[in-house]
Design a binder for these strands. Structure first.
Lengths: 285, 285
DNA sequence: TGCAAAGCAGAATATTTATTTCGTTTTGAC
DNA sequence: GTCAAAACGAAATAAATATTCTGCTTTGCA
Protein backbone atom coordinates (compact mmCIF):
# COMPACT_ATOMS: atom_id res chain seq x y z
CA UNK A 1 0.00 0.00 0.00
CA UNK A 2 1.30 3.40 -0.92
CA UNK A 3 1.25 6.28 1.48
CA UNK A 4 -1.40 8.93 0.89
CA UNK A 5 1.10 11.48 -0.22
CA UNK A 6 -1.03 14.54 -0.51
CA UNK A 7 -2.37 14.26 2.99
CA UNK A 8 1.08 14.61 4.39
CA UNK A 9 1.55 18.08 3.05
CA UNK A 10 -0.52 19.78 5.68
CA UNK A 11 1.26 18.77 8.83
CA UNK A 12 -0.85 19.71 11.81
CA UNK A 13 2.16 20.67 13.85
CA UNK A 14 3.18 23.45 11.49
CA UNK A 15 2.31 27.09 11.70
CA UNK A 16 -1.34 27.61 12.55
CA UNK A 17 -3.67 27.91 9.59
CA UNK A 18 -4.15 31.55 8.56
CA UNK A 19 -7.51 33.08 9.41
CA UNK A 20 -7.23 36.52 7.90
CA UNK A 21 -5.94 37.72 4.57
CA UNK A 22 -2.77 39.36 5.90
CA UNK A 23 -1.90 36.13 7.66
CA UNK A 24 -2.64 34.15 4.53
CA UNK A 25 -0.54 36.43 2.41
CA UNK A 26 2.53 36.16 4.57
CA UNK A 27 2.06 32.44 4.93
CA UNK A 28 2.04 32.12 1.15
CA UNK A 29 5.09 34.32 0.74
CA UNK A 30 6.97 32.30 3.33
CA UNK A 31 6.17 28.95 1.76
CA UNK A 32 6.36 30.05 -1.85
CA UNK A 33 9.87 28.84 -2.59
CA UNK A 34 9.22 25.35 -1.34
CA UNK A 35 6.12 24.79 -3.43
CA UNK A 36 5.99 22.67 -6.61
CA UNK A 37 5.59 24.38 -9.97
CA UNK A 38 1.82 24.36 -10.39
CA UNK A 39 1.18 25.39 -6.84
CA UNK A 40 3.60 28.29 -7.24
CA UNK A 41 1.35 29.58 -9.99
CA UNK A 42 -1.66 29.30 -7.72
CA UNK A 43 0.12 31.07 -4.88
CA UNK A 44 1.25 33.84 -7.14
CA UNK A 45 -2.24 34.45 -8.41
CA UNK A 46 -3.63 34.59 -4.90
CA UNK A 47 -0.94 37.03 -3.88
CA UNK A 48 -1.20 39.22 -6.95
CA UNK A 49 -4.95 39.27 -7.46
CA UNK A 50 -6.65 38.32 -4.23
CA UNK A 51 -9.72 40.38 -5.04
CA UNK A 52 -10.19 38.73 -8.38
CA UNK A 53 -9.68 35.31 -6.91
CA UNK A 54 -12.28 36.05 -4.26
CA UNK A 55 -14.98 36.35 -6.88
CA UNK A 56 -13.96 33.61 -9.31
CA UNK A 57 -14.88 29.95 -9.34
CA UNK A 58 -12.22 27.28 -9.39
CA UNK A 59 -13.07 26.61 -13.01
CA UNK A 60 -12.53 30.25 -13.88
CA UNK A 61 -9.31 30.35 -11.91
CA UNK A 62 -8.20 27.23 -13.69
CA UNK A 63 -8.74 28.85 -17.04
CA UNK A 64 -7.11 32.12 -16.00
CA UNK A 65 -3.99 30.45 -14.69
CA UNK A 66 -3.80 27.36 -16.88
CA UNK A 67 -3.71 25.22 -13.78
CA UNK A 68 -6.04 22.28 -13.32
CA UNK A 69 -8.85 22.53 -10.74
CA UNK A 70 -7.44 19.69 -8.71
CA UNK A 71 -4.24 21.64 -8.24
CA UNK A 72 -6.17 24.31 -6.38
CA UNK A 73 -7.38 21.69 -3.93
CA UNK A 74 -3.91 20.27 -3.54
CA UNK A 75 -2.65 23.75 -2.95
CA UNK A 76 -5.27 24.44 -0.29
CA UNK A 77 -4.41 21.30 1.58
CA UNK A 78 -0.71 22.00 1.27
CA UNK A 79 -1.24 25.31 3.06
CA UNK A 80 -3.30 23.72 5.79
CA UNK A 81 -6.89 24.16 4.68
CA UNK A 82 -9.57 21.59 4.20
CA UNK A 83 -10.36 22.82 0.70
CA UNK A 84 -10.13 25.82 -1.56
CA UNK A 85 -13.44 27.15 -0.31
CA UNK A 86 -11.84 27.99 3.01
CA UNK A 87 -9.25 30.11 1.30
CA UNK A 88 -11.90 31.84 -0.71
CA UNK A 89 -13.82 32.65 2.44
CA UNK A 90 -10.78 34.51 3.73
CA UNK A 91 -10.38 36.34 0.44
CA UNK A 92 -14.01 37.37 0.48
CA UNK A 93 -13.95 38.54 4.05
CA UNK A 94 -10.97 40.65 3.14
CA UNK A 95 -12.69 42.08 0.11
CA UNK A 96 -15.64 43.24 2.12
CA UNK A 97 -13.04 44.53 4.58
CA UNK A 98 -14.78 43.20 7.58
CA UNK A 99 -13.32 41.08 10.30
CA UNK A 100 -15.74 38.30 9.55
CA UNK A 101 -18.27 37.70 6.85
CA UNK A 102 -21.74 39.10 7.05
CA UNK A 103 -23.38 35.73 7.20
CA UNK A 104 -21.16 34.64 10.05
CA UNK A 105 -21.94 37.79 11.94
CA UNK A 106 -25.64 37.22 11.66
CA UNK A 107 -25.37 33.78 13.16
CA UNK A 108 -22.68 34.69 15.61
CA UNK A 109 -24.38 37.73 17.03
CA UNK A 110 -27.35 35.60 17.92
CA UNK A 111 -25.06 33.37 19.94
CA UNK A 112 -22.94 35.95 21.67
CA UNK A 113 -25.70 37.54 23.66
CA UNK A 114 -23.46 36.97 26.62
CA UNK A 115 -20.88 39.48 25.45
CA UNK A 116 -21.10 42.58 27.57
CA UNK A 117 -23.15 45.46 26.18
CA UNK A 118 -20.13 47.75 26.33
CA UNK A 119 -18.13 45.62 23.91
CA UNK A 120 -21.09 44.84 21.71
CA UNK A 121 -22.18 48.40 21.17
CA UNK A 122 -18.72 49.80 20.84
CA UNK A 123 -17.79 47.29 18.17
CA UNK A 124 -21.06 47.89 16.42
CA UNK A 125 -20.46 51.64 16.46
CA UNK A 126 -16.95 51.25 15.09
CA UNK A 127 -18.24 49.05 12.27
CA UNK A 128 -20.88 51.53 11.27
CA UNK A 129 -18.36 54.38 11.38
CA UNK A 130 -16.12 52.49 8.98
CA UNK A 131 -19.06 51.98 6.69
CA UNK A 132 -19.86 55.67 6.93
CA UNK A 133 -16.55 56.67 5.41
CA UNK A 134 -16.89 54.21 2.57
CA UNK A 135 -20.43 55.03 1.68
CA UNK A 136 -20.28 58.80 1.85
CA UNK A 137 -19.02 60.42 -1.34
CA UNK A 138 -17.20 63.70 -0.71
CA UNK A 139 -19.25 65.24 -3.50
CA UNK A 140 -22.34 64.63 -1.44
CA UNK A 141 -20.95 66.66 1.41
CA UNK A 142 -19.93 69.46 -0.91
CA UNK A 143 -23.38 69.57 -2.45
CA UNK A 144 -24.97 69.64 0.98
CA UNK A 145 -22.75 72.46 2.15
CA UNK A 146 -23.53 74.45 -0.95
CA UNK A 147 -27.25 74.08 -0.36
CA UNK A 148 -26.88 75.10 3.26
CA UNK A 149 -24.81 78.18 2.44
CA UNK A 150 -27.40 79.45 0.00
CA UNK A 151 -30.28 78.93 2.38
CA UNK A 152 -32.25 81.87 3.71
CA UNK A 153 -32.99 79.79 6.77
CA UNK A 154 -32.09 76.22 7.77
CA UNK A 155 -34.80 74.09 9.31
CA UNK A 156 -33.94 70.92 11.20
CA UNK A 157 -36.39 68.18 12.11
CA UNK A 158 -36.03 64.83 13.85
CA UNK A 159 -38.11 62.91 16.34
CA UNK A 160 -37.57 60.26 18.98
CA UNK A 161 -34.25 58.54 18.41
CA UNK A 162 -33.35 61.03 15.75
CA UNK A 163 -33.91 63.99 18.03
CA UNK A 164 -30.42 63.96 19.54
CA UNK A 165 -28.91 64.08 16.07
CA UNK A 166 -31.22 66.84 14.90
CA UNK A 167 -30.65 68.98 17.98
CA UNK A 168 -26.90 68.47 17.82
CA UNK A 169 -26.80 69.49 14.19
CA UNK A 170 -28.93 72.56 14.87
CA UNK A 171 -26.72 73.47 17.81
CA UNK A 172 -23.56 73.32 15.73
CA UNK A 173 -25.04 75.19 12.81
CA UNK A 174 -26.26 77.94 15.10
CA UNK A 175 -22.75 78.05 16.53
CA UNK A 176 -21.43 78.80 13.04
CA UNK A 177 -23.85 81.68 12.76
CA UNK A 178 -26.33 80.01 10.44
CA UNK A 179 -29.97 81.03 10.71
CA UNK A 180 -31.23 77.80 12.20
CA UNK A 181 -34.66 76.69 13.27
CA UNK A 182 -35.14 73.42 15.11
CA UNK A 183 -38.56 71.82 15.11
CA UNK A 184 -39.92 70.91 18.51
CA UNK A 185 -39.39 67.27 19.31
CA UNK A 186 -42.95 66.19 19.92
CA UNK A 187 -46.57 67.07 20.10
CA UNK A 188 -49.34 68.20 17.78
CA UNK A 189 -47.65 71.56 17.28
CA UNK A 190 -45.21 70.02 14.86
CA UNK A 191 -47.46 70.02 11.87
CA UNK A 192 -48.51 73.63 12.33
CA UNK A 193 -44.85 74.60 12.51
CA UNK A 194 -44.25 73.55 8.94
CA UNK A 195 -45.97 76.72 7.81
CA UNK A 196 -42.95 78.78 8.78
CA UNK A 197 -40.91 77.18 6.01
CA UNK A 198 -40.47 79.54 3.05
CA UNK A 199 -39.08 79.21 -0.42
CA UNK A 200 -35.35 79.79 -0.29
CA UNK A 201 -35.04 77.80 2.92
CA UNK A 202 -33.46 74.38 3.29
CA UNK A 203 -34.84 71.48 5.30
CA UNK A 204 -32.55 69.04 7.06
CA UNK A 205 -34.50 65.95 8.10
CA UNK A 206 -33.19 63.19 10.34
CA UNK A 207 -35.12 59.95 10.39
CA UNK A 208 -34.29 56.40 11.40
CA UNK A 209 -36.45 53.31 11.92
CA UNK A 210 -39.03 53.26 13.13
CA UNK A 211 -39.56 56.29 10.96
CA UNK A 212 -41.57 59.05 12.57
CA UNK A 213 -44.70 59.93 10.63
CA UNK A 214 -44.47 63.51 11.75
CA UNK A 215 -41.06 63.89 10.20
CA UNK A 216 -42.28 62.33 6.98
CA UNK A 217 -45.23 64.71 6.89
CA UNK A 218 -43.13 67.79 7.42
CA UNK A 219 -40.72 66.69 4.72
CA UNK A 220 -43.56 66.05 2.34
CA UNK A 221 -45.00 69.50 2.92
CA UNK A 222 -41.71 71.28 2.47
CA UNK A 223 -40.78 69.26 -0.60
CA UNK A 224 -44.10 70.25 -2.14
CA UNK A 225 -43.01 73.89 -1.78
CA UNK A 226 -39.87 73.17 -3.76
CA UNK A 227 -37.80 73.65 -0.65
CA UNK A 228 -34.76 71.38 -0.99
CA UNK A 229 -34.47 68.60 1.57
CA UNK A 230 -31.27 67.10 2.95
CA UNK A 231 -31.99 63.70 4.46
CA UNK A 232 -29.93 61.99 7.14
CA UNK A 233 -31.25 58.48 7.31
CA UNK A 234 -30.29 54.84 7.11
CA UNK A 235 -31.37 53.93 3.61
CA UNK A 236 -31.99 55.35 0.16
CA UNK A 237 -35.45 53.90 0.28
CA UNK A 238 -36.33 55.38 3.65
CA UNK A 239 -39.57 57.39 3.58
CA UNK A 240 -37.89 60.79 3.67
CA UNK A 241 -35.18 59.80 1.21
CA UNK A 242 -37.55 59.77 -1.71
CA UNK A 243 -38.23 63.47 -1.62
CA UNK A 244 -34.75 64.53 -0.66
CA UNK A 245 -32.31 66.34 -2.95
CA UNK A 246 -29.40 64.94 -1.03
CA UNK A 247 -29.36 61.74 0.99
CA UNK A 248 -26.75 60.93 3.59
CA UNK A 249 -26.70 57.33 4.68
CA UNK A 250 -25.61 56.48 8.20
CA UNK A 251 -26.35 52.84 8.29
CA UNK A 252 -26.66 51.55 11.76
CA UNK A 253 -25.23 48.20 12.40
CA UNK A 254 -27.71 46.58 14.72
CA UNK A 255 -26.43 45.00 17.92
CA UNK A 256 -28.89 42.99 19.94
CA UNK A 257 -31.83 44.95 18.61
CA UNK A 258 -30.38 48.34 19.49
CA UNK A 259 -28.84 50.52 16.86
CA UNK A 260 -26.14 52.99 17.59
CA UNK A 261 -26.48 56.67 16.86
CA UNK A 262 -22.72 57.06 16.71
CA UNK A 263 -22.41 57.20 12.95
CA UNK A 264 -25.36 59.57 12.61
CA UNK A 265 -23.89 61.92 15.21
CA UNK A 266 -20.52 61.91 13.50
CA UNK A 267 -22.15 62.48 10.13
CA UNK A 268 -24.08 65.47 11.48
CA UNK A 269 -20.86 66.84 12.89
CA UNK A 270 -19.02 66.38 9.63
CA UNK A 271 -21.67 68.20 7.64
CA UNK A 272 -21.81 71.06 10.13
CA UNK A 273 -18.05 71.45 10.38
CA UNK A 274 -17.70 71.32 6.61
CA UNK A 275 -20.20 74.14 6.48
CA UNK A 276 -18.26 76.03 9.13
CA UNK A 277 -14.99 75.62 7.27
CA UNK A 278 -16.59 76.76 4.04
CA UNK A 279 -17.87 80.02 5.48
CA UNK A 280 -14.60 80.57 7.31
CA UNK A 281 -12.71 80.17 4.05
CA UNK A 282 -15.01 82.64 2.39
CA UNK A 283 -14.65 85.17 5.18
CA UNK A 284 -10.86 85.13 5.02
CA UNK A 285 -10.88 85.82 1.33
CA UNK B 1 -55.03 26.52 -17.64
CA UNK B 2 -53.88 29.37 -15.51
CA UNK B 3 -51.57 32.02 -16.78
CA UNK B 4 -48.00 31.82 -15.63
CA UNK B 5 -48.29 34.83 -13.40
CA UNK B 6 -44.72 35.35 -12.44
CA UNK B 7 -43.49 35.34 -15.98
CA UNK B 8 -45.63 38.32 -16.78
CA UNK B 9 -43.83 40.53 -14.32
CA UNK B 10 -40.83 41.13 -16.52
CA UNK B 11 -42.37 42.71 -19.56
CA UNK B 12 -39.79 42.79 -22.32
CA UNK B 13 -41.11 46.07 -23.65
CA UNK B 14 -40.30 47.93 -20.44
CA UNK B 15 -37.11 49.70 -19.61
CA UNK B 16 -34.12 47.74 -20.82
CA UNK B 17 -32.64 45.36 -18.29
CA UNK B 18 -29.86 47.08 -16.31
CA UNK B 19 -26.34 46.03 -17.15
CA UNK B 20 -24.28 48.01 -14.68
CA UNK B 21 -24.69 48.62 -11.00
CA UNK B 22 -25.66 52.30 -11.24
CA UNK B 23 -28.33 51.34 -13.74
CA UNK B 24 -29.52 48.57 -11.50
CA UNK B 25 -29.63 50.83 -8.52
CA UNK B 26 -31.74 53.49 -10.17
CA UNK B 27 -33.98 50.86 -11.71
CA UNK B 28 -34.62 49.44 -8.26
CA UNK B 29 -35.29 52.85 -6.78
CA UNK B 30 -37.71 53.63 -9.57
CA UNK B 31 -39.63 50.40 -9.26
CA UNK B 32 -39.45 50.12 -5.49
CA UNK B 33 -42.87 51.56 -4.73
CA UNK B 34 -44.69 49.21 -7.03
CA UNK B 35 -43.12 46.05 -5.64
CA UNK B 36 -44.88 43.60 -3.29
CA UNK B 37 -43.81 43.40 0.31
CA UNK B 38 -41.20 40.66 0.21
CA UNK B 39 -39.63 41.98 -2.94
CA UNK B 40 -39.35 45.41 -1.35
CA UNK B 41 -37.21 43.84 1.35
CA UNK B 42 -35.00 42.27 -1.29
CA UNK B 43 -34.69 45.54 -3.18
CA UNK B 44 -33.83 47.44 -0.03
CA UNK B 45 -31.07 45.01 0.88
CA UNK B 46 -29.59 45.24 -2.60
CA UNK B 47 -29.71 49.03 -2.45
CA UNK B 48 -28.36 49.37 1.06
CA UNK B 49 -25.76 46.60 1.09
CA UNK B 50 -24.79 45.79 -2.48
CA UNK B 51 -21.29 44.78 -1.50
CA UNK B 52 -22.48 42.32 1.07
CA UNK B 53 -25.06 40.90 -1.31
CA UNK B 54 -22.40 40.43 -3.96
CA UNK B 55 -20.57 37.89 -1.82
CA UNK B 56 -23.46 36.07 -0.19
CA UNK B 57 -25.35 33.03 -1.40
CA UNK B 58 -29.09 33.14 -1.77
CA UNK B 59 -29.41 31.01 1.35
CA UNK B 60 -27.34 33.49 3.34
CA UNK B 61 -29.32 36.40 1.96
CA UNK B 62 -32.48 34.60 2.88
CA UNK B 63 -31.35 34.25 6.46
CA UNK B 64 -30.14 37.82 6.67
CA UNK B 65 -33.36 39.30 5.35
CA UNK B 66 -35.91 36.76 6.51
CA UNK B 67 -37.09 36.37 2.93
CA UNK B 68 -37.46 32.96 1.29
CA UNK B 69 -35.00 31.98 -1.46
CA UNK B 70 -37.77 31.73 -4.02
CA UNK B 71 -38.60 35.36 -3.46
CA UNK B 72 -35.13 36.31 -4.68
CA UNK B 73 -35.81 34.55 -7.94
CA UNK B 74 -39.24 36.13 -8.22
CA UNK B 75 -37.58 39.45 -7.60
CA UNK B 76 -34.96 38.91 -10.26
CA UNK B 77 -37.55 38.05 -12.87
CA UNK B 78 -39.73 40.97 -11.86
CA UNK B 79 -36.84 43.31 -12.58
CA UNK B 80 -36.16 41.70 -15.93
CA UNK B 81 -33.43 39.18 -15.26
CA UNK B 82 -33.39 35.49 -15.95
CA UNK B 83 -32.35 34.62 -12.41
CA UNK B 84 -30.68 36.02 -9.33
CA UNK B 85 -27.28 35.02 -10.57
CA UNK B 86 -27.44 37.69 -13.23
CA UNK B 87 -28.02 40.33 -10.61
CA UNK B 88 -25.17 39.01 -8.55
CA UNK B 89 -22.89 39.20 -11.55
CA UNK B 90 -23.60 42.91 -11.77
CA UNK B 91 -22.99 43.35 -8.06
CA UNK B 92 -19.71 41.50 -8.29
CA UNK B 93 -18.51 43.45 -11.27
CA UNK B 94 -19.22 46.58 -9.33
CA UNK B 95 -17.45 45.29 -6.26
CA UNK B 96 -14.30 44.40 -8.12
CA UNK B 97 -13.75 47.94 -9.28
CA UNK B 98 -15.03 49.77 -6.29
CA UNK B 99 -13.44 52.57 -4.41
CA UNK B 100 -10.48 51.99 -2.17
CA UNK B 101 -10.95 50.65 1.30
CA UNK B 102 -11.43 52.72 4.38
CA UNK B 103 -7.97 52.04 5.72
CA UNK B 104 -6.30 53.07 2.49
CA UNK B 105 -8.40 56.15 2.29
CA UNK B 106 -7.43 57.32 5.75
CA UNK B 107 -3.74 56.68 5.33
CA UNK B 108 -3.70 58.22 1.91
CA UNK B 109 -5.53 61.38 2.82
CA UNK B 110 -3.51 61.83 6.00
CA UNK B 111 -0.50 62.31 3.80
CA UNK B 112 -2.11 65.01 1.78
CA UNK B 113 -2.29 68.31 3.54
CA UNK B 114 -6.01 68.75 3.77
CA UNK B 115 -7.51 65.79 5.55
CA UNK B 116 -11.21 65.84 4.86
CA UNK B 117 -13.50 66.33 7.85
CA UNK B 118 -15.18 63.01 7.18
CA UNK B 119 -11.98 61.05 7.69
CA UNK B 120 -10.81 63.22 10.53
CA UNK B 121 -13.90 62.92 12.63
CA UNK B 122 -14.53 59.30 11.90
CA UNK B 123 -11.02 58.35 12.91
CA UNK B 124 -11.29 60.48 15.98
CA UNK B 125 -14.57 58.85 16.94
CA UNK B 126 -13.17 55.37 16.47
CA UNK B 127 -10.18 56.23 18.65
CA UNK B 128 -12.33 57.51 21.45
CA UNK B 129 -14.58 54.47 21.24
CA UNK B 130 -11.59 52.22 21.65
CA UNK B 131 -10.57 54.22 24.67
CA UNK B 132 -14.07 53.93 26.04
CA UNK B 133 -13.90 50.15 26.24
CA UNK B 134 -10.57 50.21 28.01
CA UNK B 135 -11.40 52.91 30.50
CA UNK B 136 -14.84 51.77 31.58
CA UNK B 137 -14.80 49.12 34.29
CA UNK B 138 -17.80 46.74 34.10
CA UNK B 139 -18.24 47.20 37.83
CA UNK B 140 -18.97 50.84 37.18
CA UNK B 141 -21.81 49.96 34.88
CA UNK B 142 -23.23 47.46 37.33
CA UNK B 143 -23.11 50.02 40.10
CA UNK B 144 -24.81 52.59 37.91
CA UNK B 145 -27.54 50.16 36.93
CA UNK B 146 -28.13 49.27 40.56
CA UNK B 147 -28.54 52.92 41.49
CA UNK B 148 -30.92 53.49 38.59
CA UNK B 149 -33.05 50.49 39.46
CA UNK B 150 -33.52 51.63 43.03
CA UNK B 151 -34.42 55.17 42.06
CA UNK B 152 -37.86 56.53 42.72
CA UNK B 153 -37.37 58.83 39.75
CA UNK B 154 -34.48 59.37 37.36
CA UNK B 155 -33.56 62.94 36.47
CA UNK B 156 -31.37 63.69 33.49
CA UNK B 157 -29.62 66.97 32.83
CA UNK B 158 -27.28 68.18 30.12
CA UNK B 159 -26.87 71.43 28.25
CA UNK B 160 -25.54 72.58 24.92
CA UNK B 161 -23.31 69.89 23.42
CA UNK B 162 -24.31 67.49 26.15
CA UNK B 163 -27.99 67.90 25.42
CA UNK B 164 -28.13 65.27 22.68
CA UNK B 165 -26.57 62.73 25.02
CA UNK B 166 -28.89 63.62 27.87
CA UNK B 167 -32.01 63.53 25.74
CA UNK B 168 -31.00 60.25 24.13
CA UNK B 169 -30.39 58.67 27.50
CA UNK B 170 -33.72 59.93 28.83
CA UNK B 171 -35.48 58.67 25.71
CA UNK B 172 -34.06 55.18 26.08
CA UNK B 173 -34.72 54.99 29.82
CA UNK B 174 -38.30 56.07 29.31
CA UNK B 175 -38.56 53.37 26.68
CA UNK B 176 -37.59 50.81 29.29
CA UNK B 177 -40.37 52.03 31.50
CA UNK B 178 -38.25 53.98 33.95
CA UNK B 179 -39.75 57.05 35.56
CA UNK B 180 -37.62 59.60 33.77
CA UNK B 181 -37.51 63.36 33.93
CA UNK B 182 -35.42 65.34 31.50
CA UNK B 183 -34.44 68.88 32.38
CA UNK B 184 -35.22 71.46 29.76
CA UNK B 185 -32.21 72.29 27.66
CA UNK B 186 -31.99 76.01 28.25
CA UNK B 187 -33.34 79.08 29.88
CA UNK B 188 -33.82 80.44 33.34
CA UNK B 189 -36.41 77.79 34.16
CA UNK B 190 -33.68 75.22 34.63
CA UNK B 191 -32.72 76.28 38.10
CA UNK B 192 -36.27 76.31 39.36
CA UNK B 193 -36.76 72.82 38.05
CA UNK B 194 -34.22 71.46 40.49
CA UNK B 195 -36.82 71.73 43.20
CA UNK B 196 -38.67 68.72 41.86
CA UNK B 197 -35.79 66.45 42.82
CA UNK B 198 -36.64 64.42 45.94
CA UNK B 199 -34.71 62.07 48.19
CA UNK B 200 -34.79 58.60 46.70
CA UNK B 201 -34.27 59.94 43.21
CA UNK B 202 -31.15 59.63 41.10
CA UNK B 203 -29.56 62.36 39.02
CA UNK B 204 -27.80 61.60 35.77
CA UNK B 205 -25.72 64.57 34.68
CA UNK B 206 -23.98 64.92 31.35
CA UNK B 207 -21.35 67.60 31.06
CA UNK B 208 -18.46 68.22 28.72
CA UNK B 209 -16.20 71.21 28.20
CA UNK B 210 -16.96 73.96 28.20
CA UNK B 211 -18.89 72.83 31.24
CA UNK B 212 -22.31 74.37 31.62
CA UNK B 213 -22.72 76.31 34.85
CA UNK B 214 -26.38 75.46 35.00
CA UNK B 215 -25.64 71.75 34.99
CA UNK B 216 -23.05 72.24 37.70
CA UNK B 217 -25.52 74.18 39.82
CA UNK B 218 -28.27 71.57 39.51
CA UNK B 219 -25.83 68.83 40.41
CA UNK B 220 -24.64 70.80 43.41
CA UNK B 221 -28.16 71.31 44.65
CA UNK B 222 -29.17 67.69 44.26
CA UNK B 223 -25.96 66.40 45.80
CA UNK B 224 -26.66 68.59 48.81
CA UNK B 225 -29.93 66.70 49.24
CA UNK B 226 -28.03 63.40 49.37
CA UNK B 227 -29.46 62.45 46.01
CA UNK B 228 -26.87 60.23 44.27
CA UNK B 229 -25.39 61.61 41.05
CA UNK B 230 -24.19 59.63 38.06
CA UNK B 231 -21.85 61.72 35.95
CA UNK B 232 -21.16 61.25 32.27
CA UNK B 233 -18.24 63.51 31.53
CA UNK B 234 -14.76 63.64 30.12
CA UNK B 235 -12.66 63.67 33.25
CA UNK B 236 -12.61 62.63 36.91
CA UNK B 237 -11.83 66.19 37.79
CA UNK B 238 -14.63 67.74 35.81
CA UNK B 239 -16.85 70.06 37.88
CA UNK B 240 -19.72 67.62 38.19
CA UNK B 241 -17.44 64.65 38.84
CA UNK B 242 -16.53 65.82 42.32
CA UNK B 243 -20.02 65.41 43.70
CA UNK B 244 -20.88 62.27 41.75
CA UNK B 245 -21.21 58.81 43.25
CA UNK B 246 -20.36 57.22 39.93
CA UNK B 247 -18.32 58.78 37.15
CA UNK B 248 -18.31 57.54 33.58
CA UNK B 249 -15.53 58.87 31.45
CA UNK B 250 -16.06 59.32 27.75
CA UNK B 251 -12.88 61.03 26.81
CA UNK B 252 -13.21 62.84 23.60
CA UNK B 253 -10.36 62.73 21.25
CA UNK B 254 -10.19 66.19 19.84
CA UNK B 255 -10.03 66.62 16.09
CA UNK B 256 -9.35 70.09 14.78
CA UNK B 257 -10.97 71.76 17.75
CA UNK B 258 -14.16 69.76 17.52
CA UNK B 259 -14.80 66.85 19.82
CA UNK B 260 -16.92 63.93 18.87
CA UNK B 261 -19.97 62.93 20.84
CA UNK B 262 -19.78 59.39 19.52
CA UNK B 263 -18.29 57.81 22.61
CA UNK B 264 -20.64 59.67 24.92
CA UNK B 265 -23.65 58.56 22.90
CA UNK B 266 -22.50 54.96 22.92
CA UNK B 267 -21.79 55.14 26.63
CA UNK B 268 -25.30 56.45 27.30
CA UNK B 269 -26.69 53.65 25.20
CA UNK B 270 -24.67 51.03 27.03
CA UNK B 271 -25.84 52.22 30.44
CA UNK B 272 -29.45 52.39 29.34
CA UNK B 273 -29.43 48.98 27.68
CA UNK B 274 -27.69 47.42 30.66
CA UNK B 275 -30.50 48.83 32.77
CA UNK B 276 -33.06 47.44 30.34
CA UNK B 277 -31.51 43.99 30.38
CA UNK B 278 -31.38 44.02 34.16
CA UNK B 279 -35.07 44.74 34.58
CA UNK B 280 -35.92 42.27 31.82
CA UNK B 281 -33.96 39.58 33.63
CA UNK B 282 -35.77 40.39 36.84
CA UNK B 283 -39.16 40.30 35.17
CA UNK B 284 -38.58 36.88 33.67
CA UNK B 285 -37.58 35.44 37.01
C1' DT C 1 19.67 4.53 -16.67
C1' DG C 2 16.56 2.72 -13.20
C1' DC C 3 13.48 3.42 -9.73
C1' DA C 4 10.73 5.37 -6.22
C1' DA C 5 8.43 9.40 -4.71
C1' DA C 6 6.05 13.33 -5.81
C1' DG C 7 3.38 15.93 -8.99
C1' DC C 8 -0.06 16.26 -12.21
C1' DA C 9 -4.38 16.06 -15.56
C1' DG C 10 -8.68 14.55 -16.49
C1' DA C 11 -12.73 12.28 -15.38
C1' DA C 12 -15.98 10.79 -11.71
C1' DT C 13 -18.27 12.01 -7.64
C1' DA C 14 -20.03 14.69 -3.82
C1' DT C 15 -21.59 18.89 -2.28
C1' DT C 16 -23.33 23.15 -2.47
C1' DT C 17 -26.24 26.47 -4.53
C1' DA C 18 -29.71 28.25 -7.74
C1' DT C 19 -34.14 27.59 -9.63
C1' DT C 20 -38.76 25.57 -10.36
C1' DT C 21 -42.94 23.78 -8.88
C1' DC C 22 -47.04 23.74 -6.44
C1' DG C 23 -50.24 24.14 -2.67
C1' DT C 24 -51.54 27.77 0.66
C1' DT C 25 -52.24 32.43 2.14
C1' DT C 26 -52.96 37.08 1.43
C1' DT C 27 -54.64 41.05 -1.02
C1' DG C 28 -57.78 43.93 -3.42
C1' DA C 29 -61.92 44.76 -6.19
C1' DC C 30 -66.74 44.28 -6.28
C1' DG D 1 -68.43 38.91 2.63
C1' DT D 2 -66.90 36.56 -2.12
C1' DC D 3 -64.09 35.70 -5.51
C1' DA D 4 -60.15 35.96 -8.44
C1' DA D 5 -55.59 37.42 -8.91
C1' DA D 6 -51.41 37.94 -6.89
C1' DA D 7 -48.00 36.81 -3.58
C1' DC D 8 -45.85 33.67 -0.68
C1' DG D 9 -43.41 29.56 1.62
C1' DA D 10 -41.66 25.10 1.54
C1' DA D 11 -40.00 21.33 -0.64
C1' DA D 12 -38.41 19.14 -4.98
C1' DT D 13 -35.47 19.57 -8.80
C1' DA D 14 -31.84 21.23 -11.68
C1' DA D 15 -27.51 23.37 -12.28
C1' DA D 16 -23.16 24.79 -10.73
C1' DT D 17 -19.20 24.12 -8.35
C1' DA D 18 -15.92 21.92 -5.31
C1' DT D 19 -13.56 17.84 -4.21
C1' DT D 20 -11.84 13.15 -4.79
C1' DC D 21 -10.02 9.46 -7.31
C1' DT D 22 -7.25 7.15 -10.75
C1' DG D 23 -3.67 6.37 -13.66
C1' DC D 24 -0.02 8.76 -16.05
C1' DT D 25 4.15 11.87 -16.08
C1' DT D 26 7.83 14.16 -14.24
C1' DT D 27 11.51 14.75 -10.93
C1' DG D 28 15.41 13.65 -8.20
C1' DC D 29 18.58 10.53 -6.48
C1' DA D 30 21.76 6.43 -6.82
Amino acid sequence: MTVLRDDLLGQPSETPTPQTYPELRSALLARYDGLPAQLKIVAQFLIDKPNDAALMTIAALSEATGVQPSAFIRFSKAVGFKGFSEIQTILRDNLSNRQVSYAERVTRSSQSASLAPLERFTQSAIDSLSTLVESTPPANIDAGVKLLRNARQIHVVGHRRSWPVASYFAYMMAGFGAATHLFSPTGPMAEADASIVRPGDVMVAVSFPRYSEETARIVEQTAAMNVPVIAITNSRVAPIARQAQIVFEADQDEAAGFRSLASAIVLAQVIAVSYGEAIAAEASR
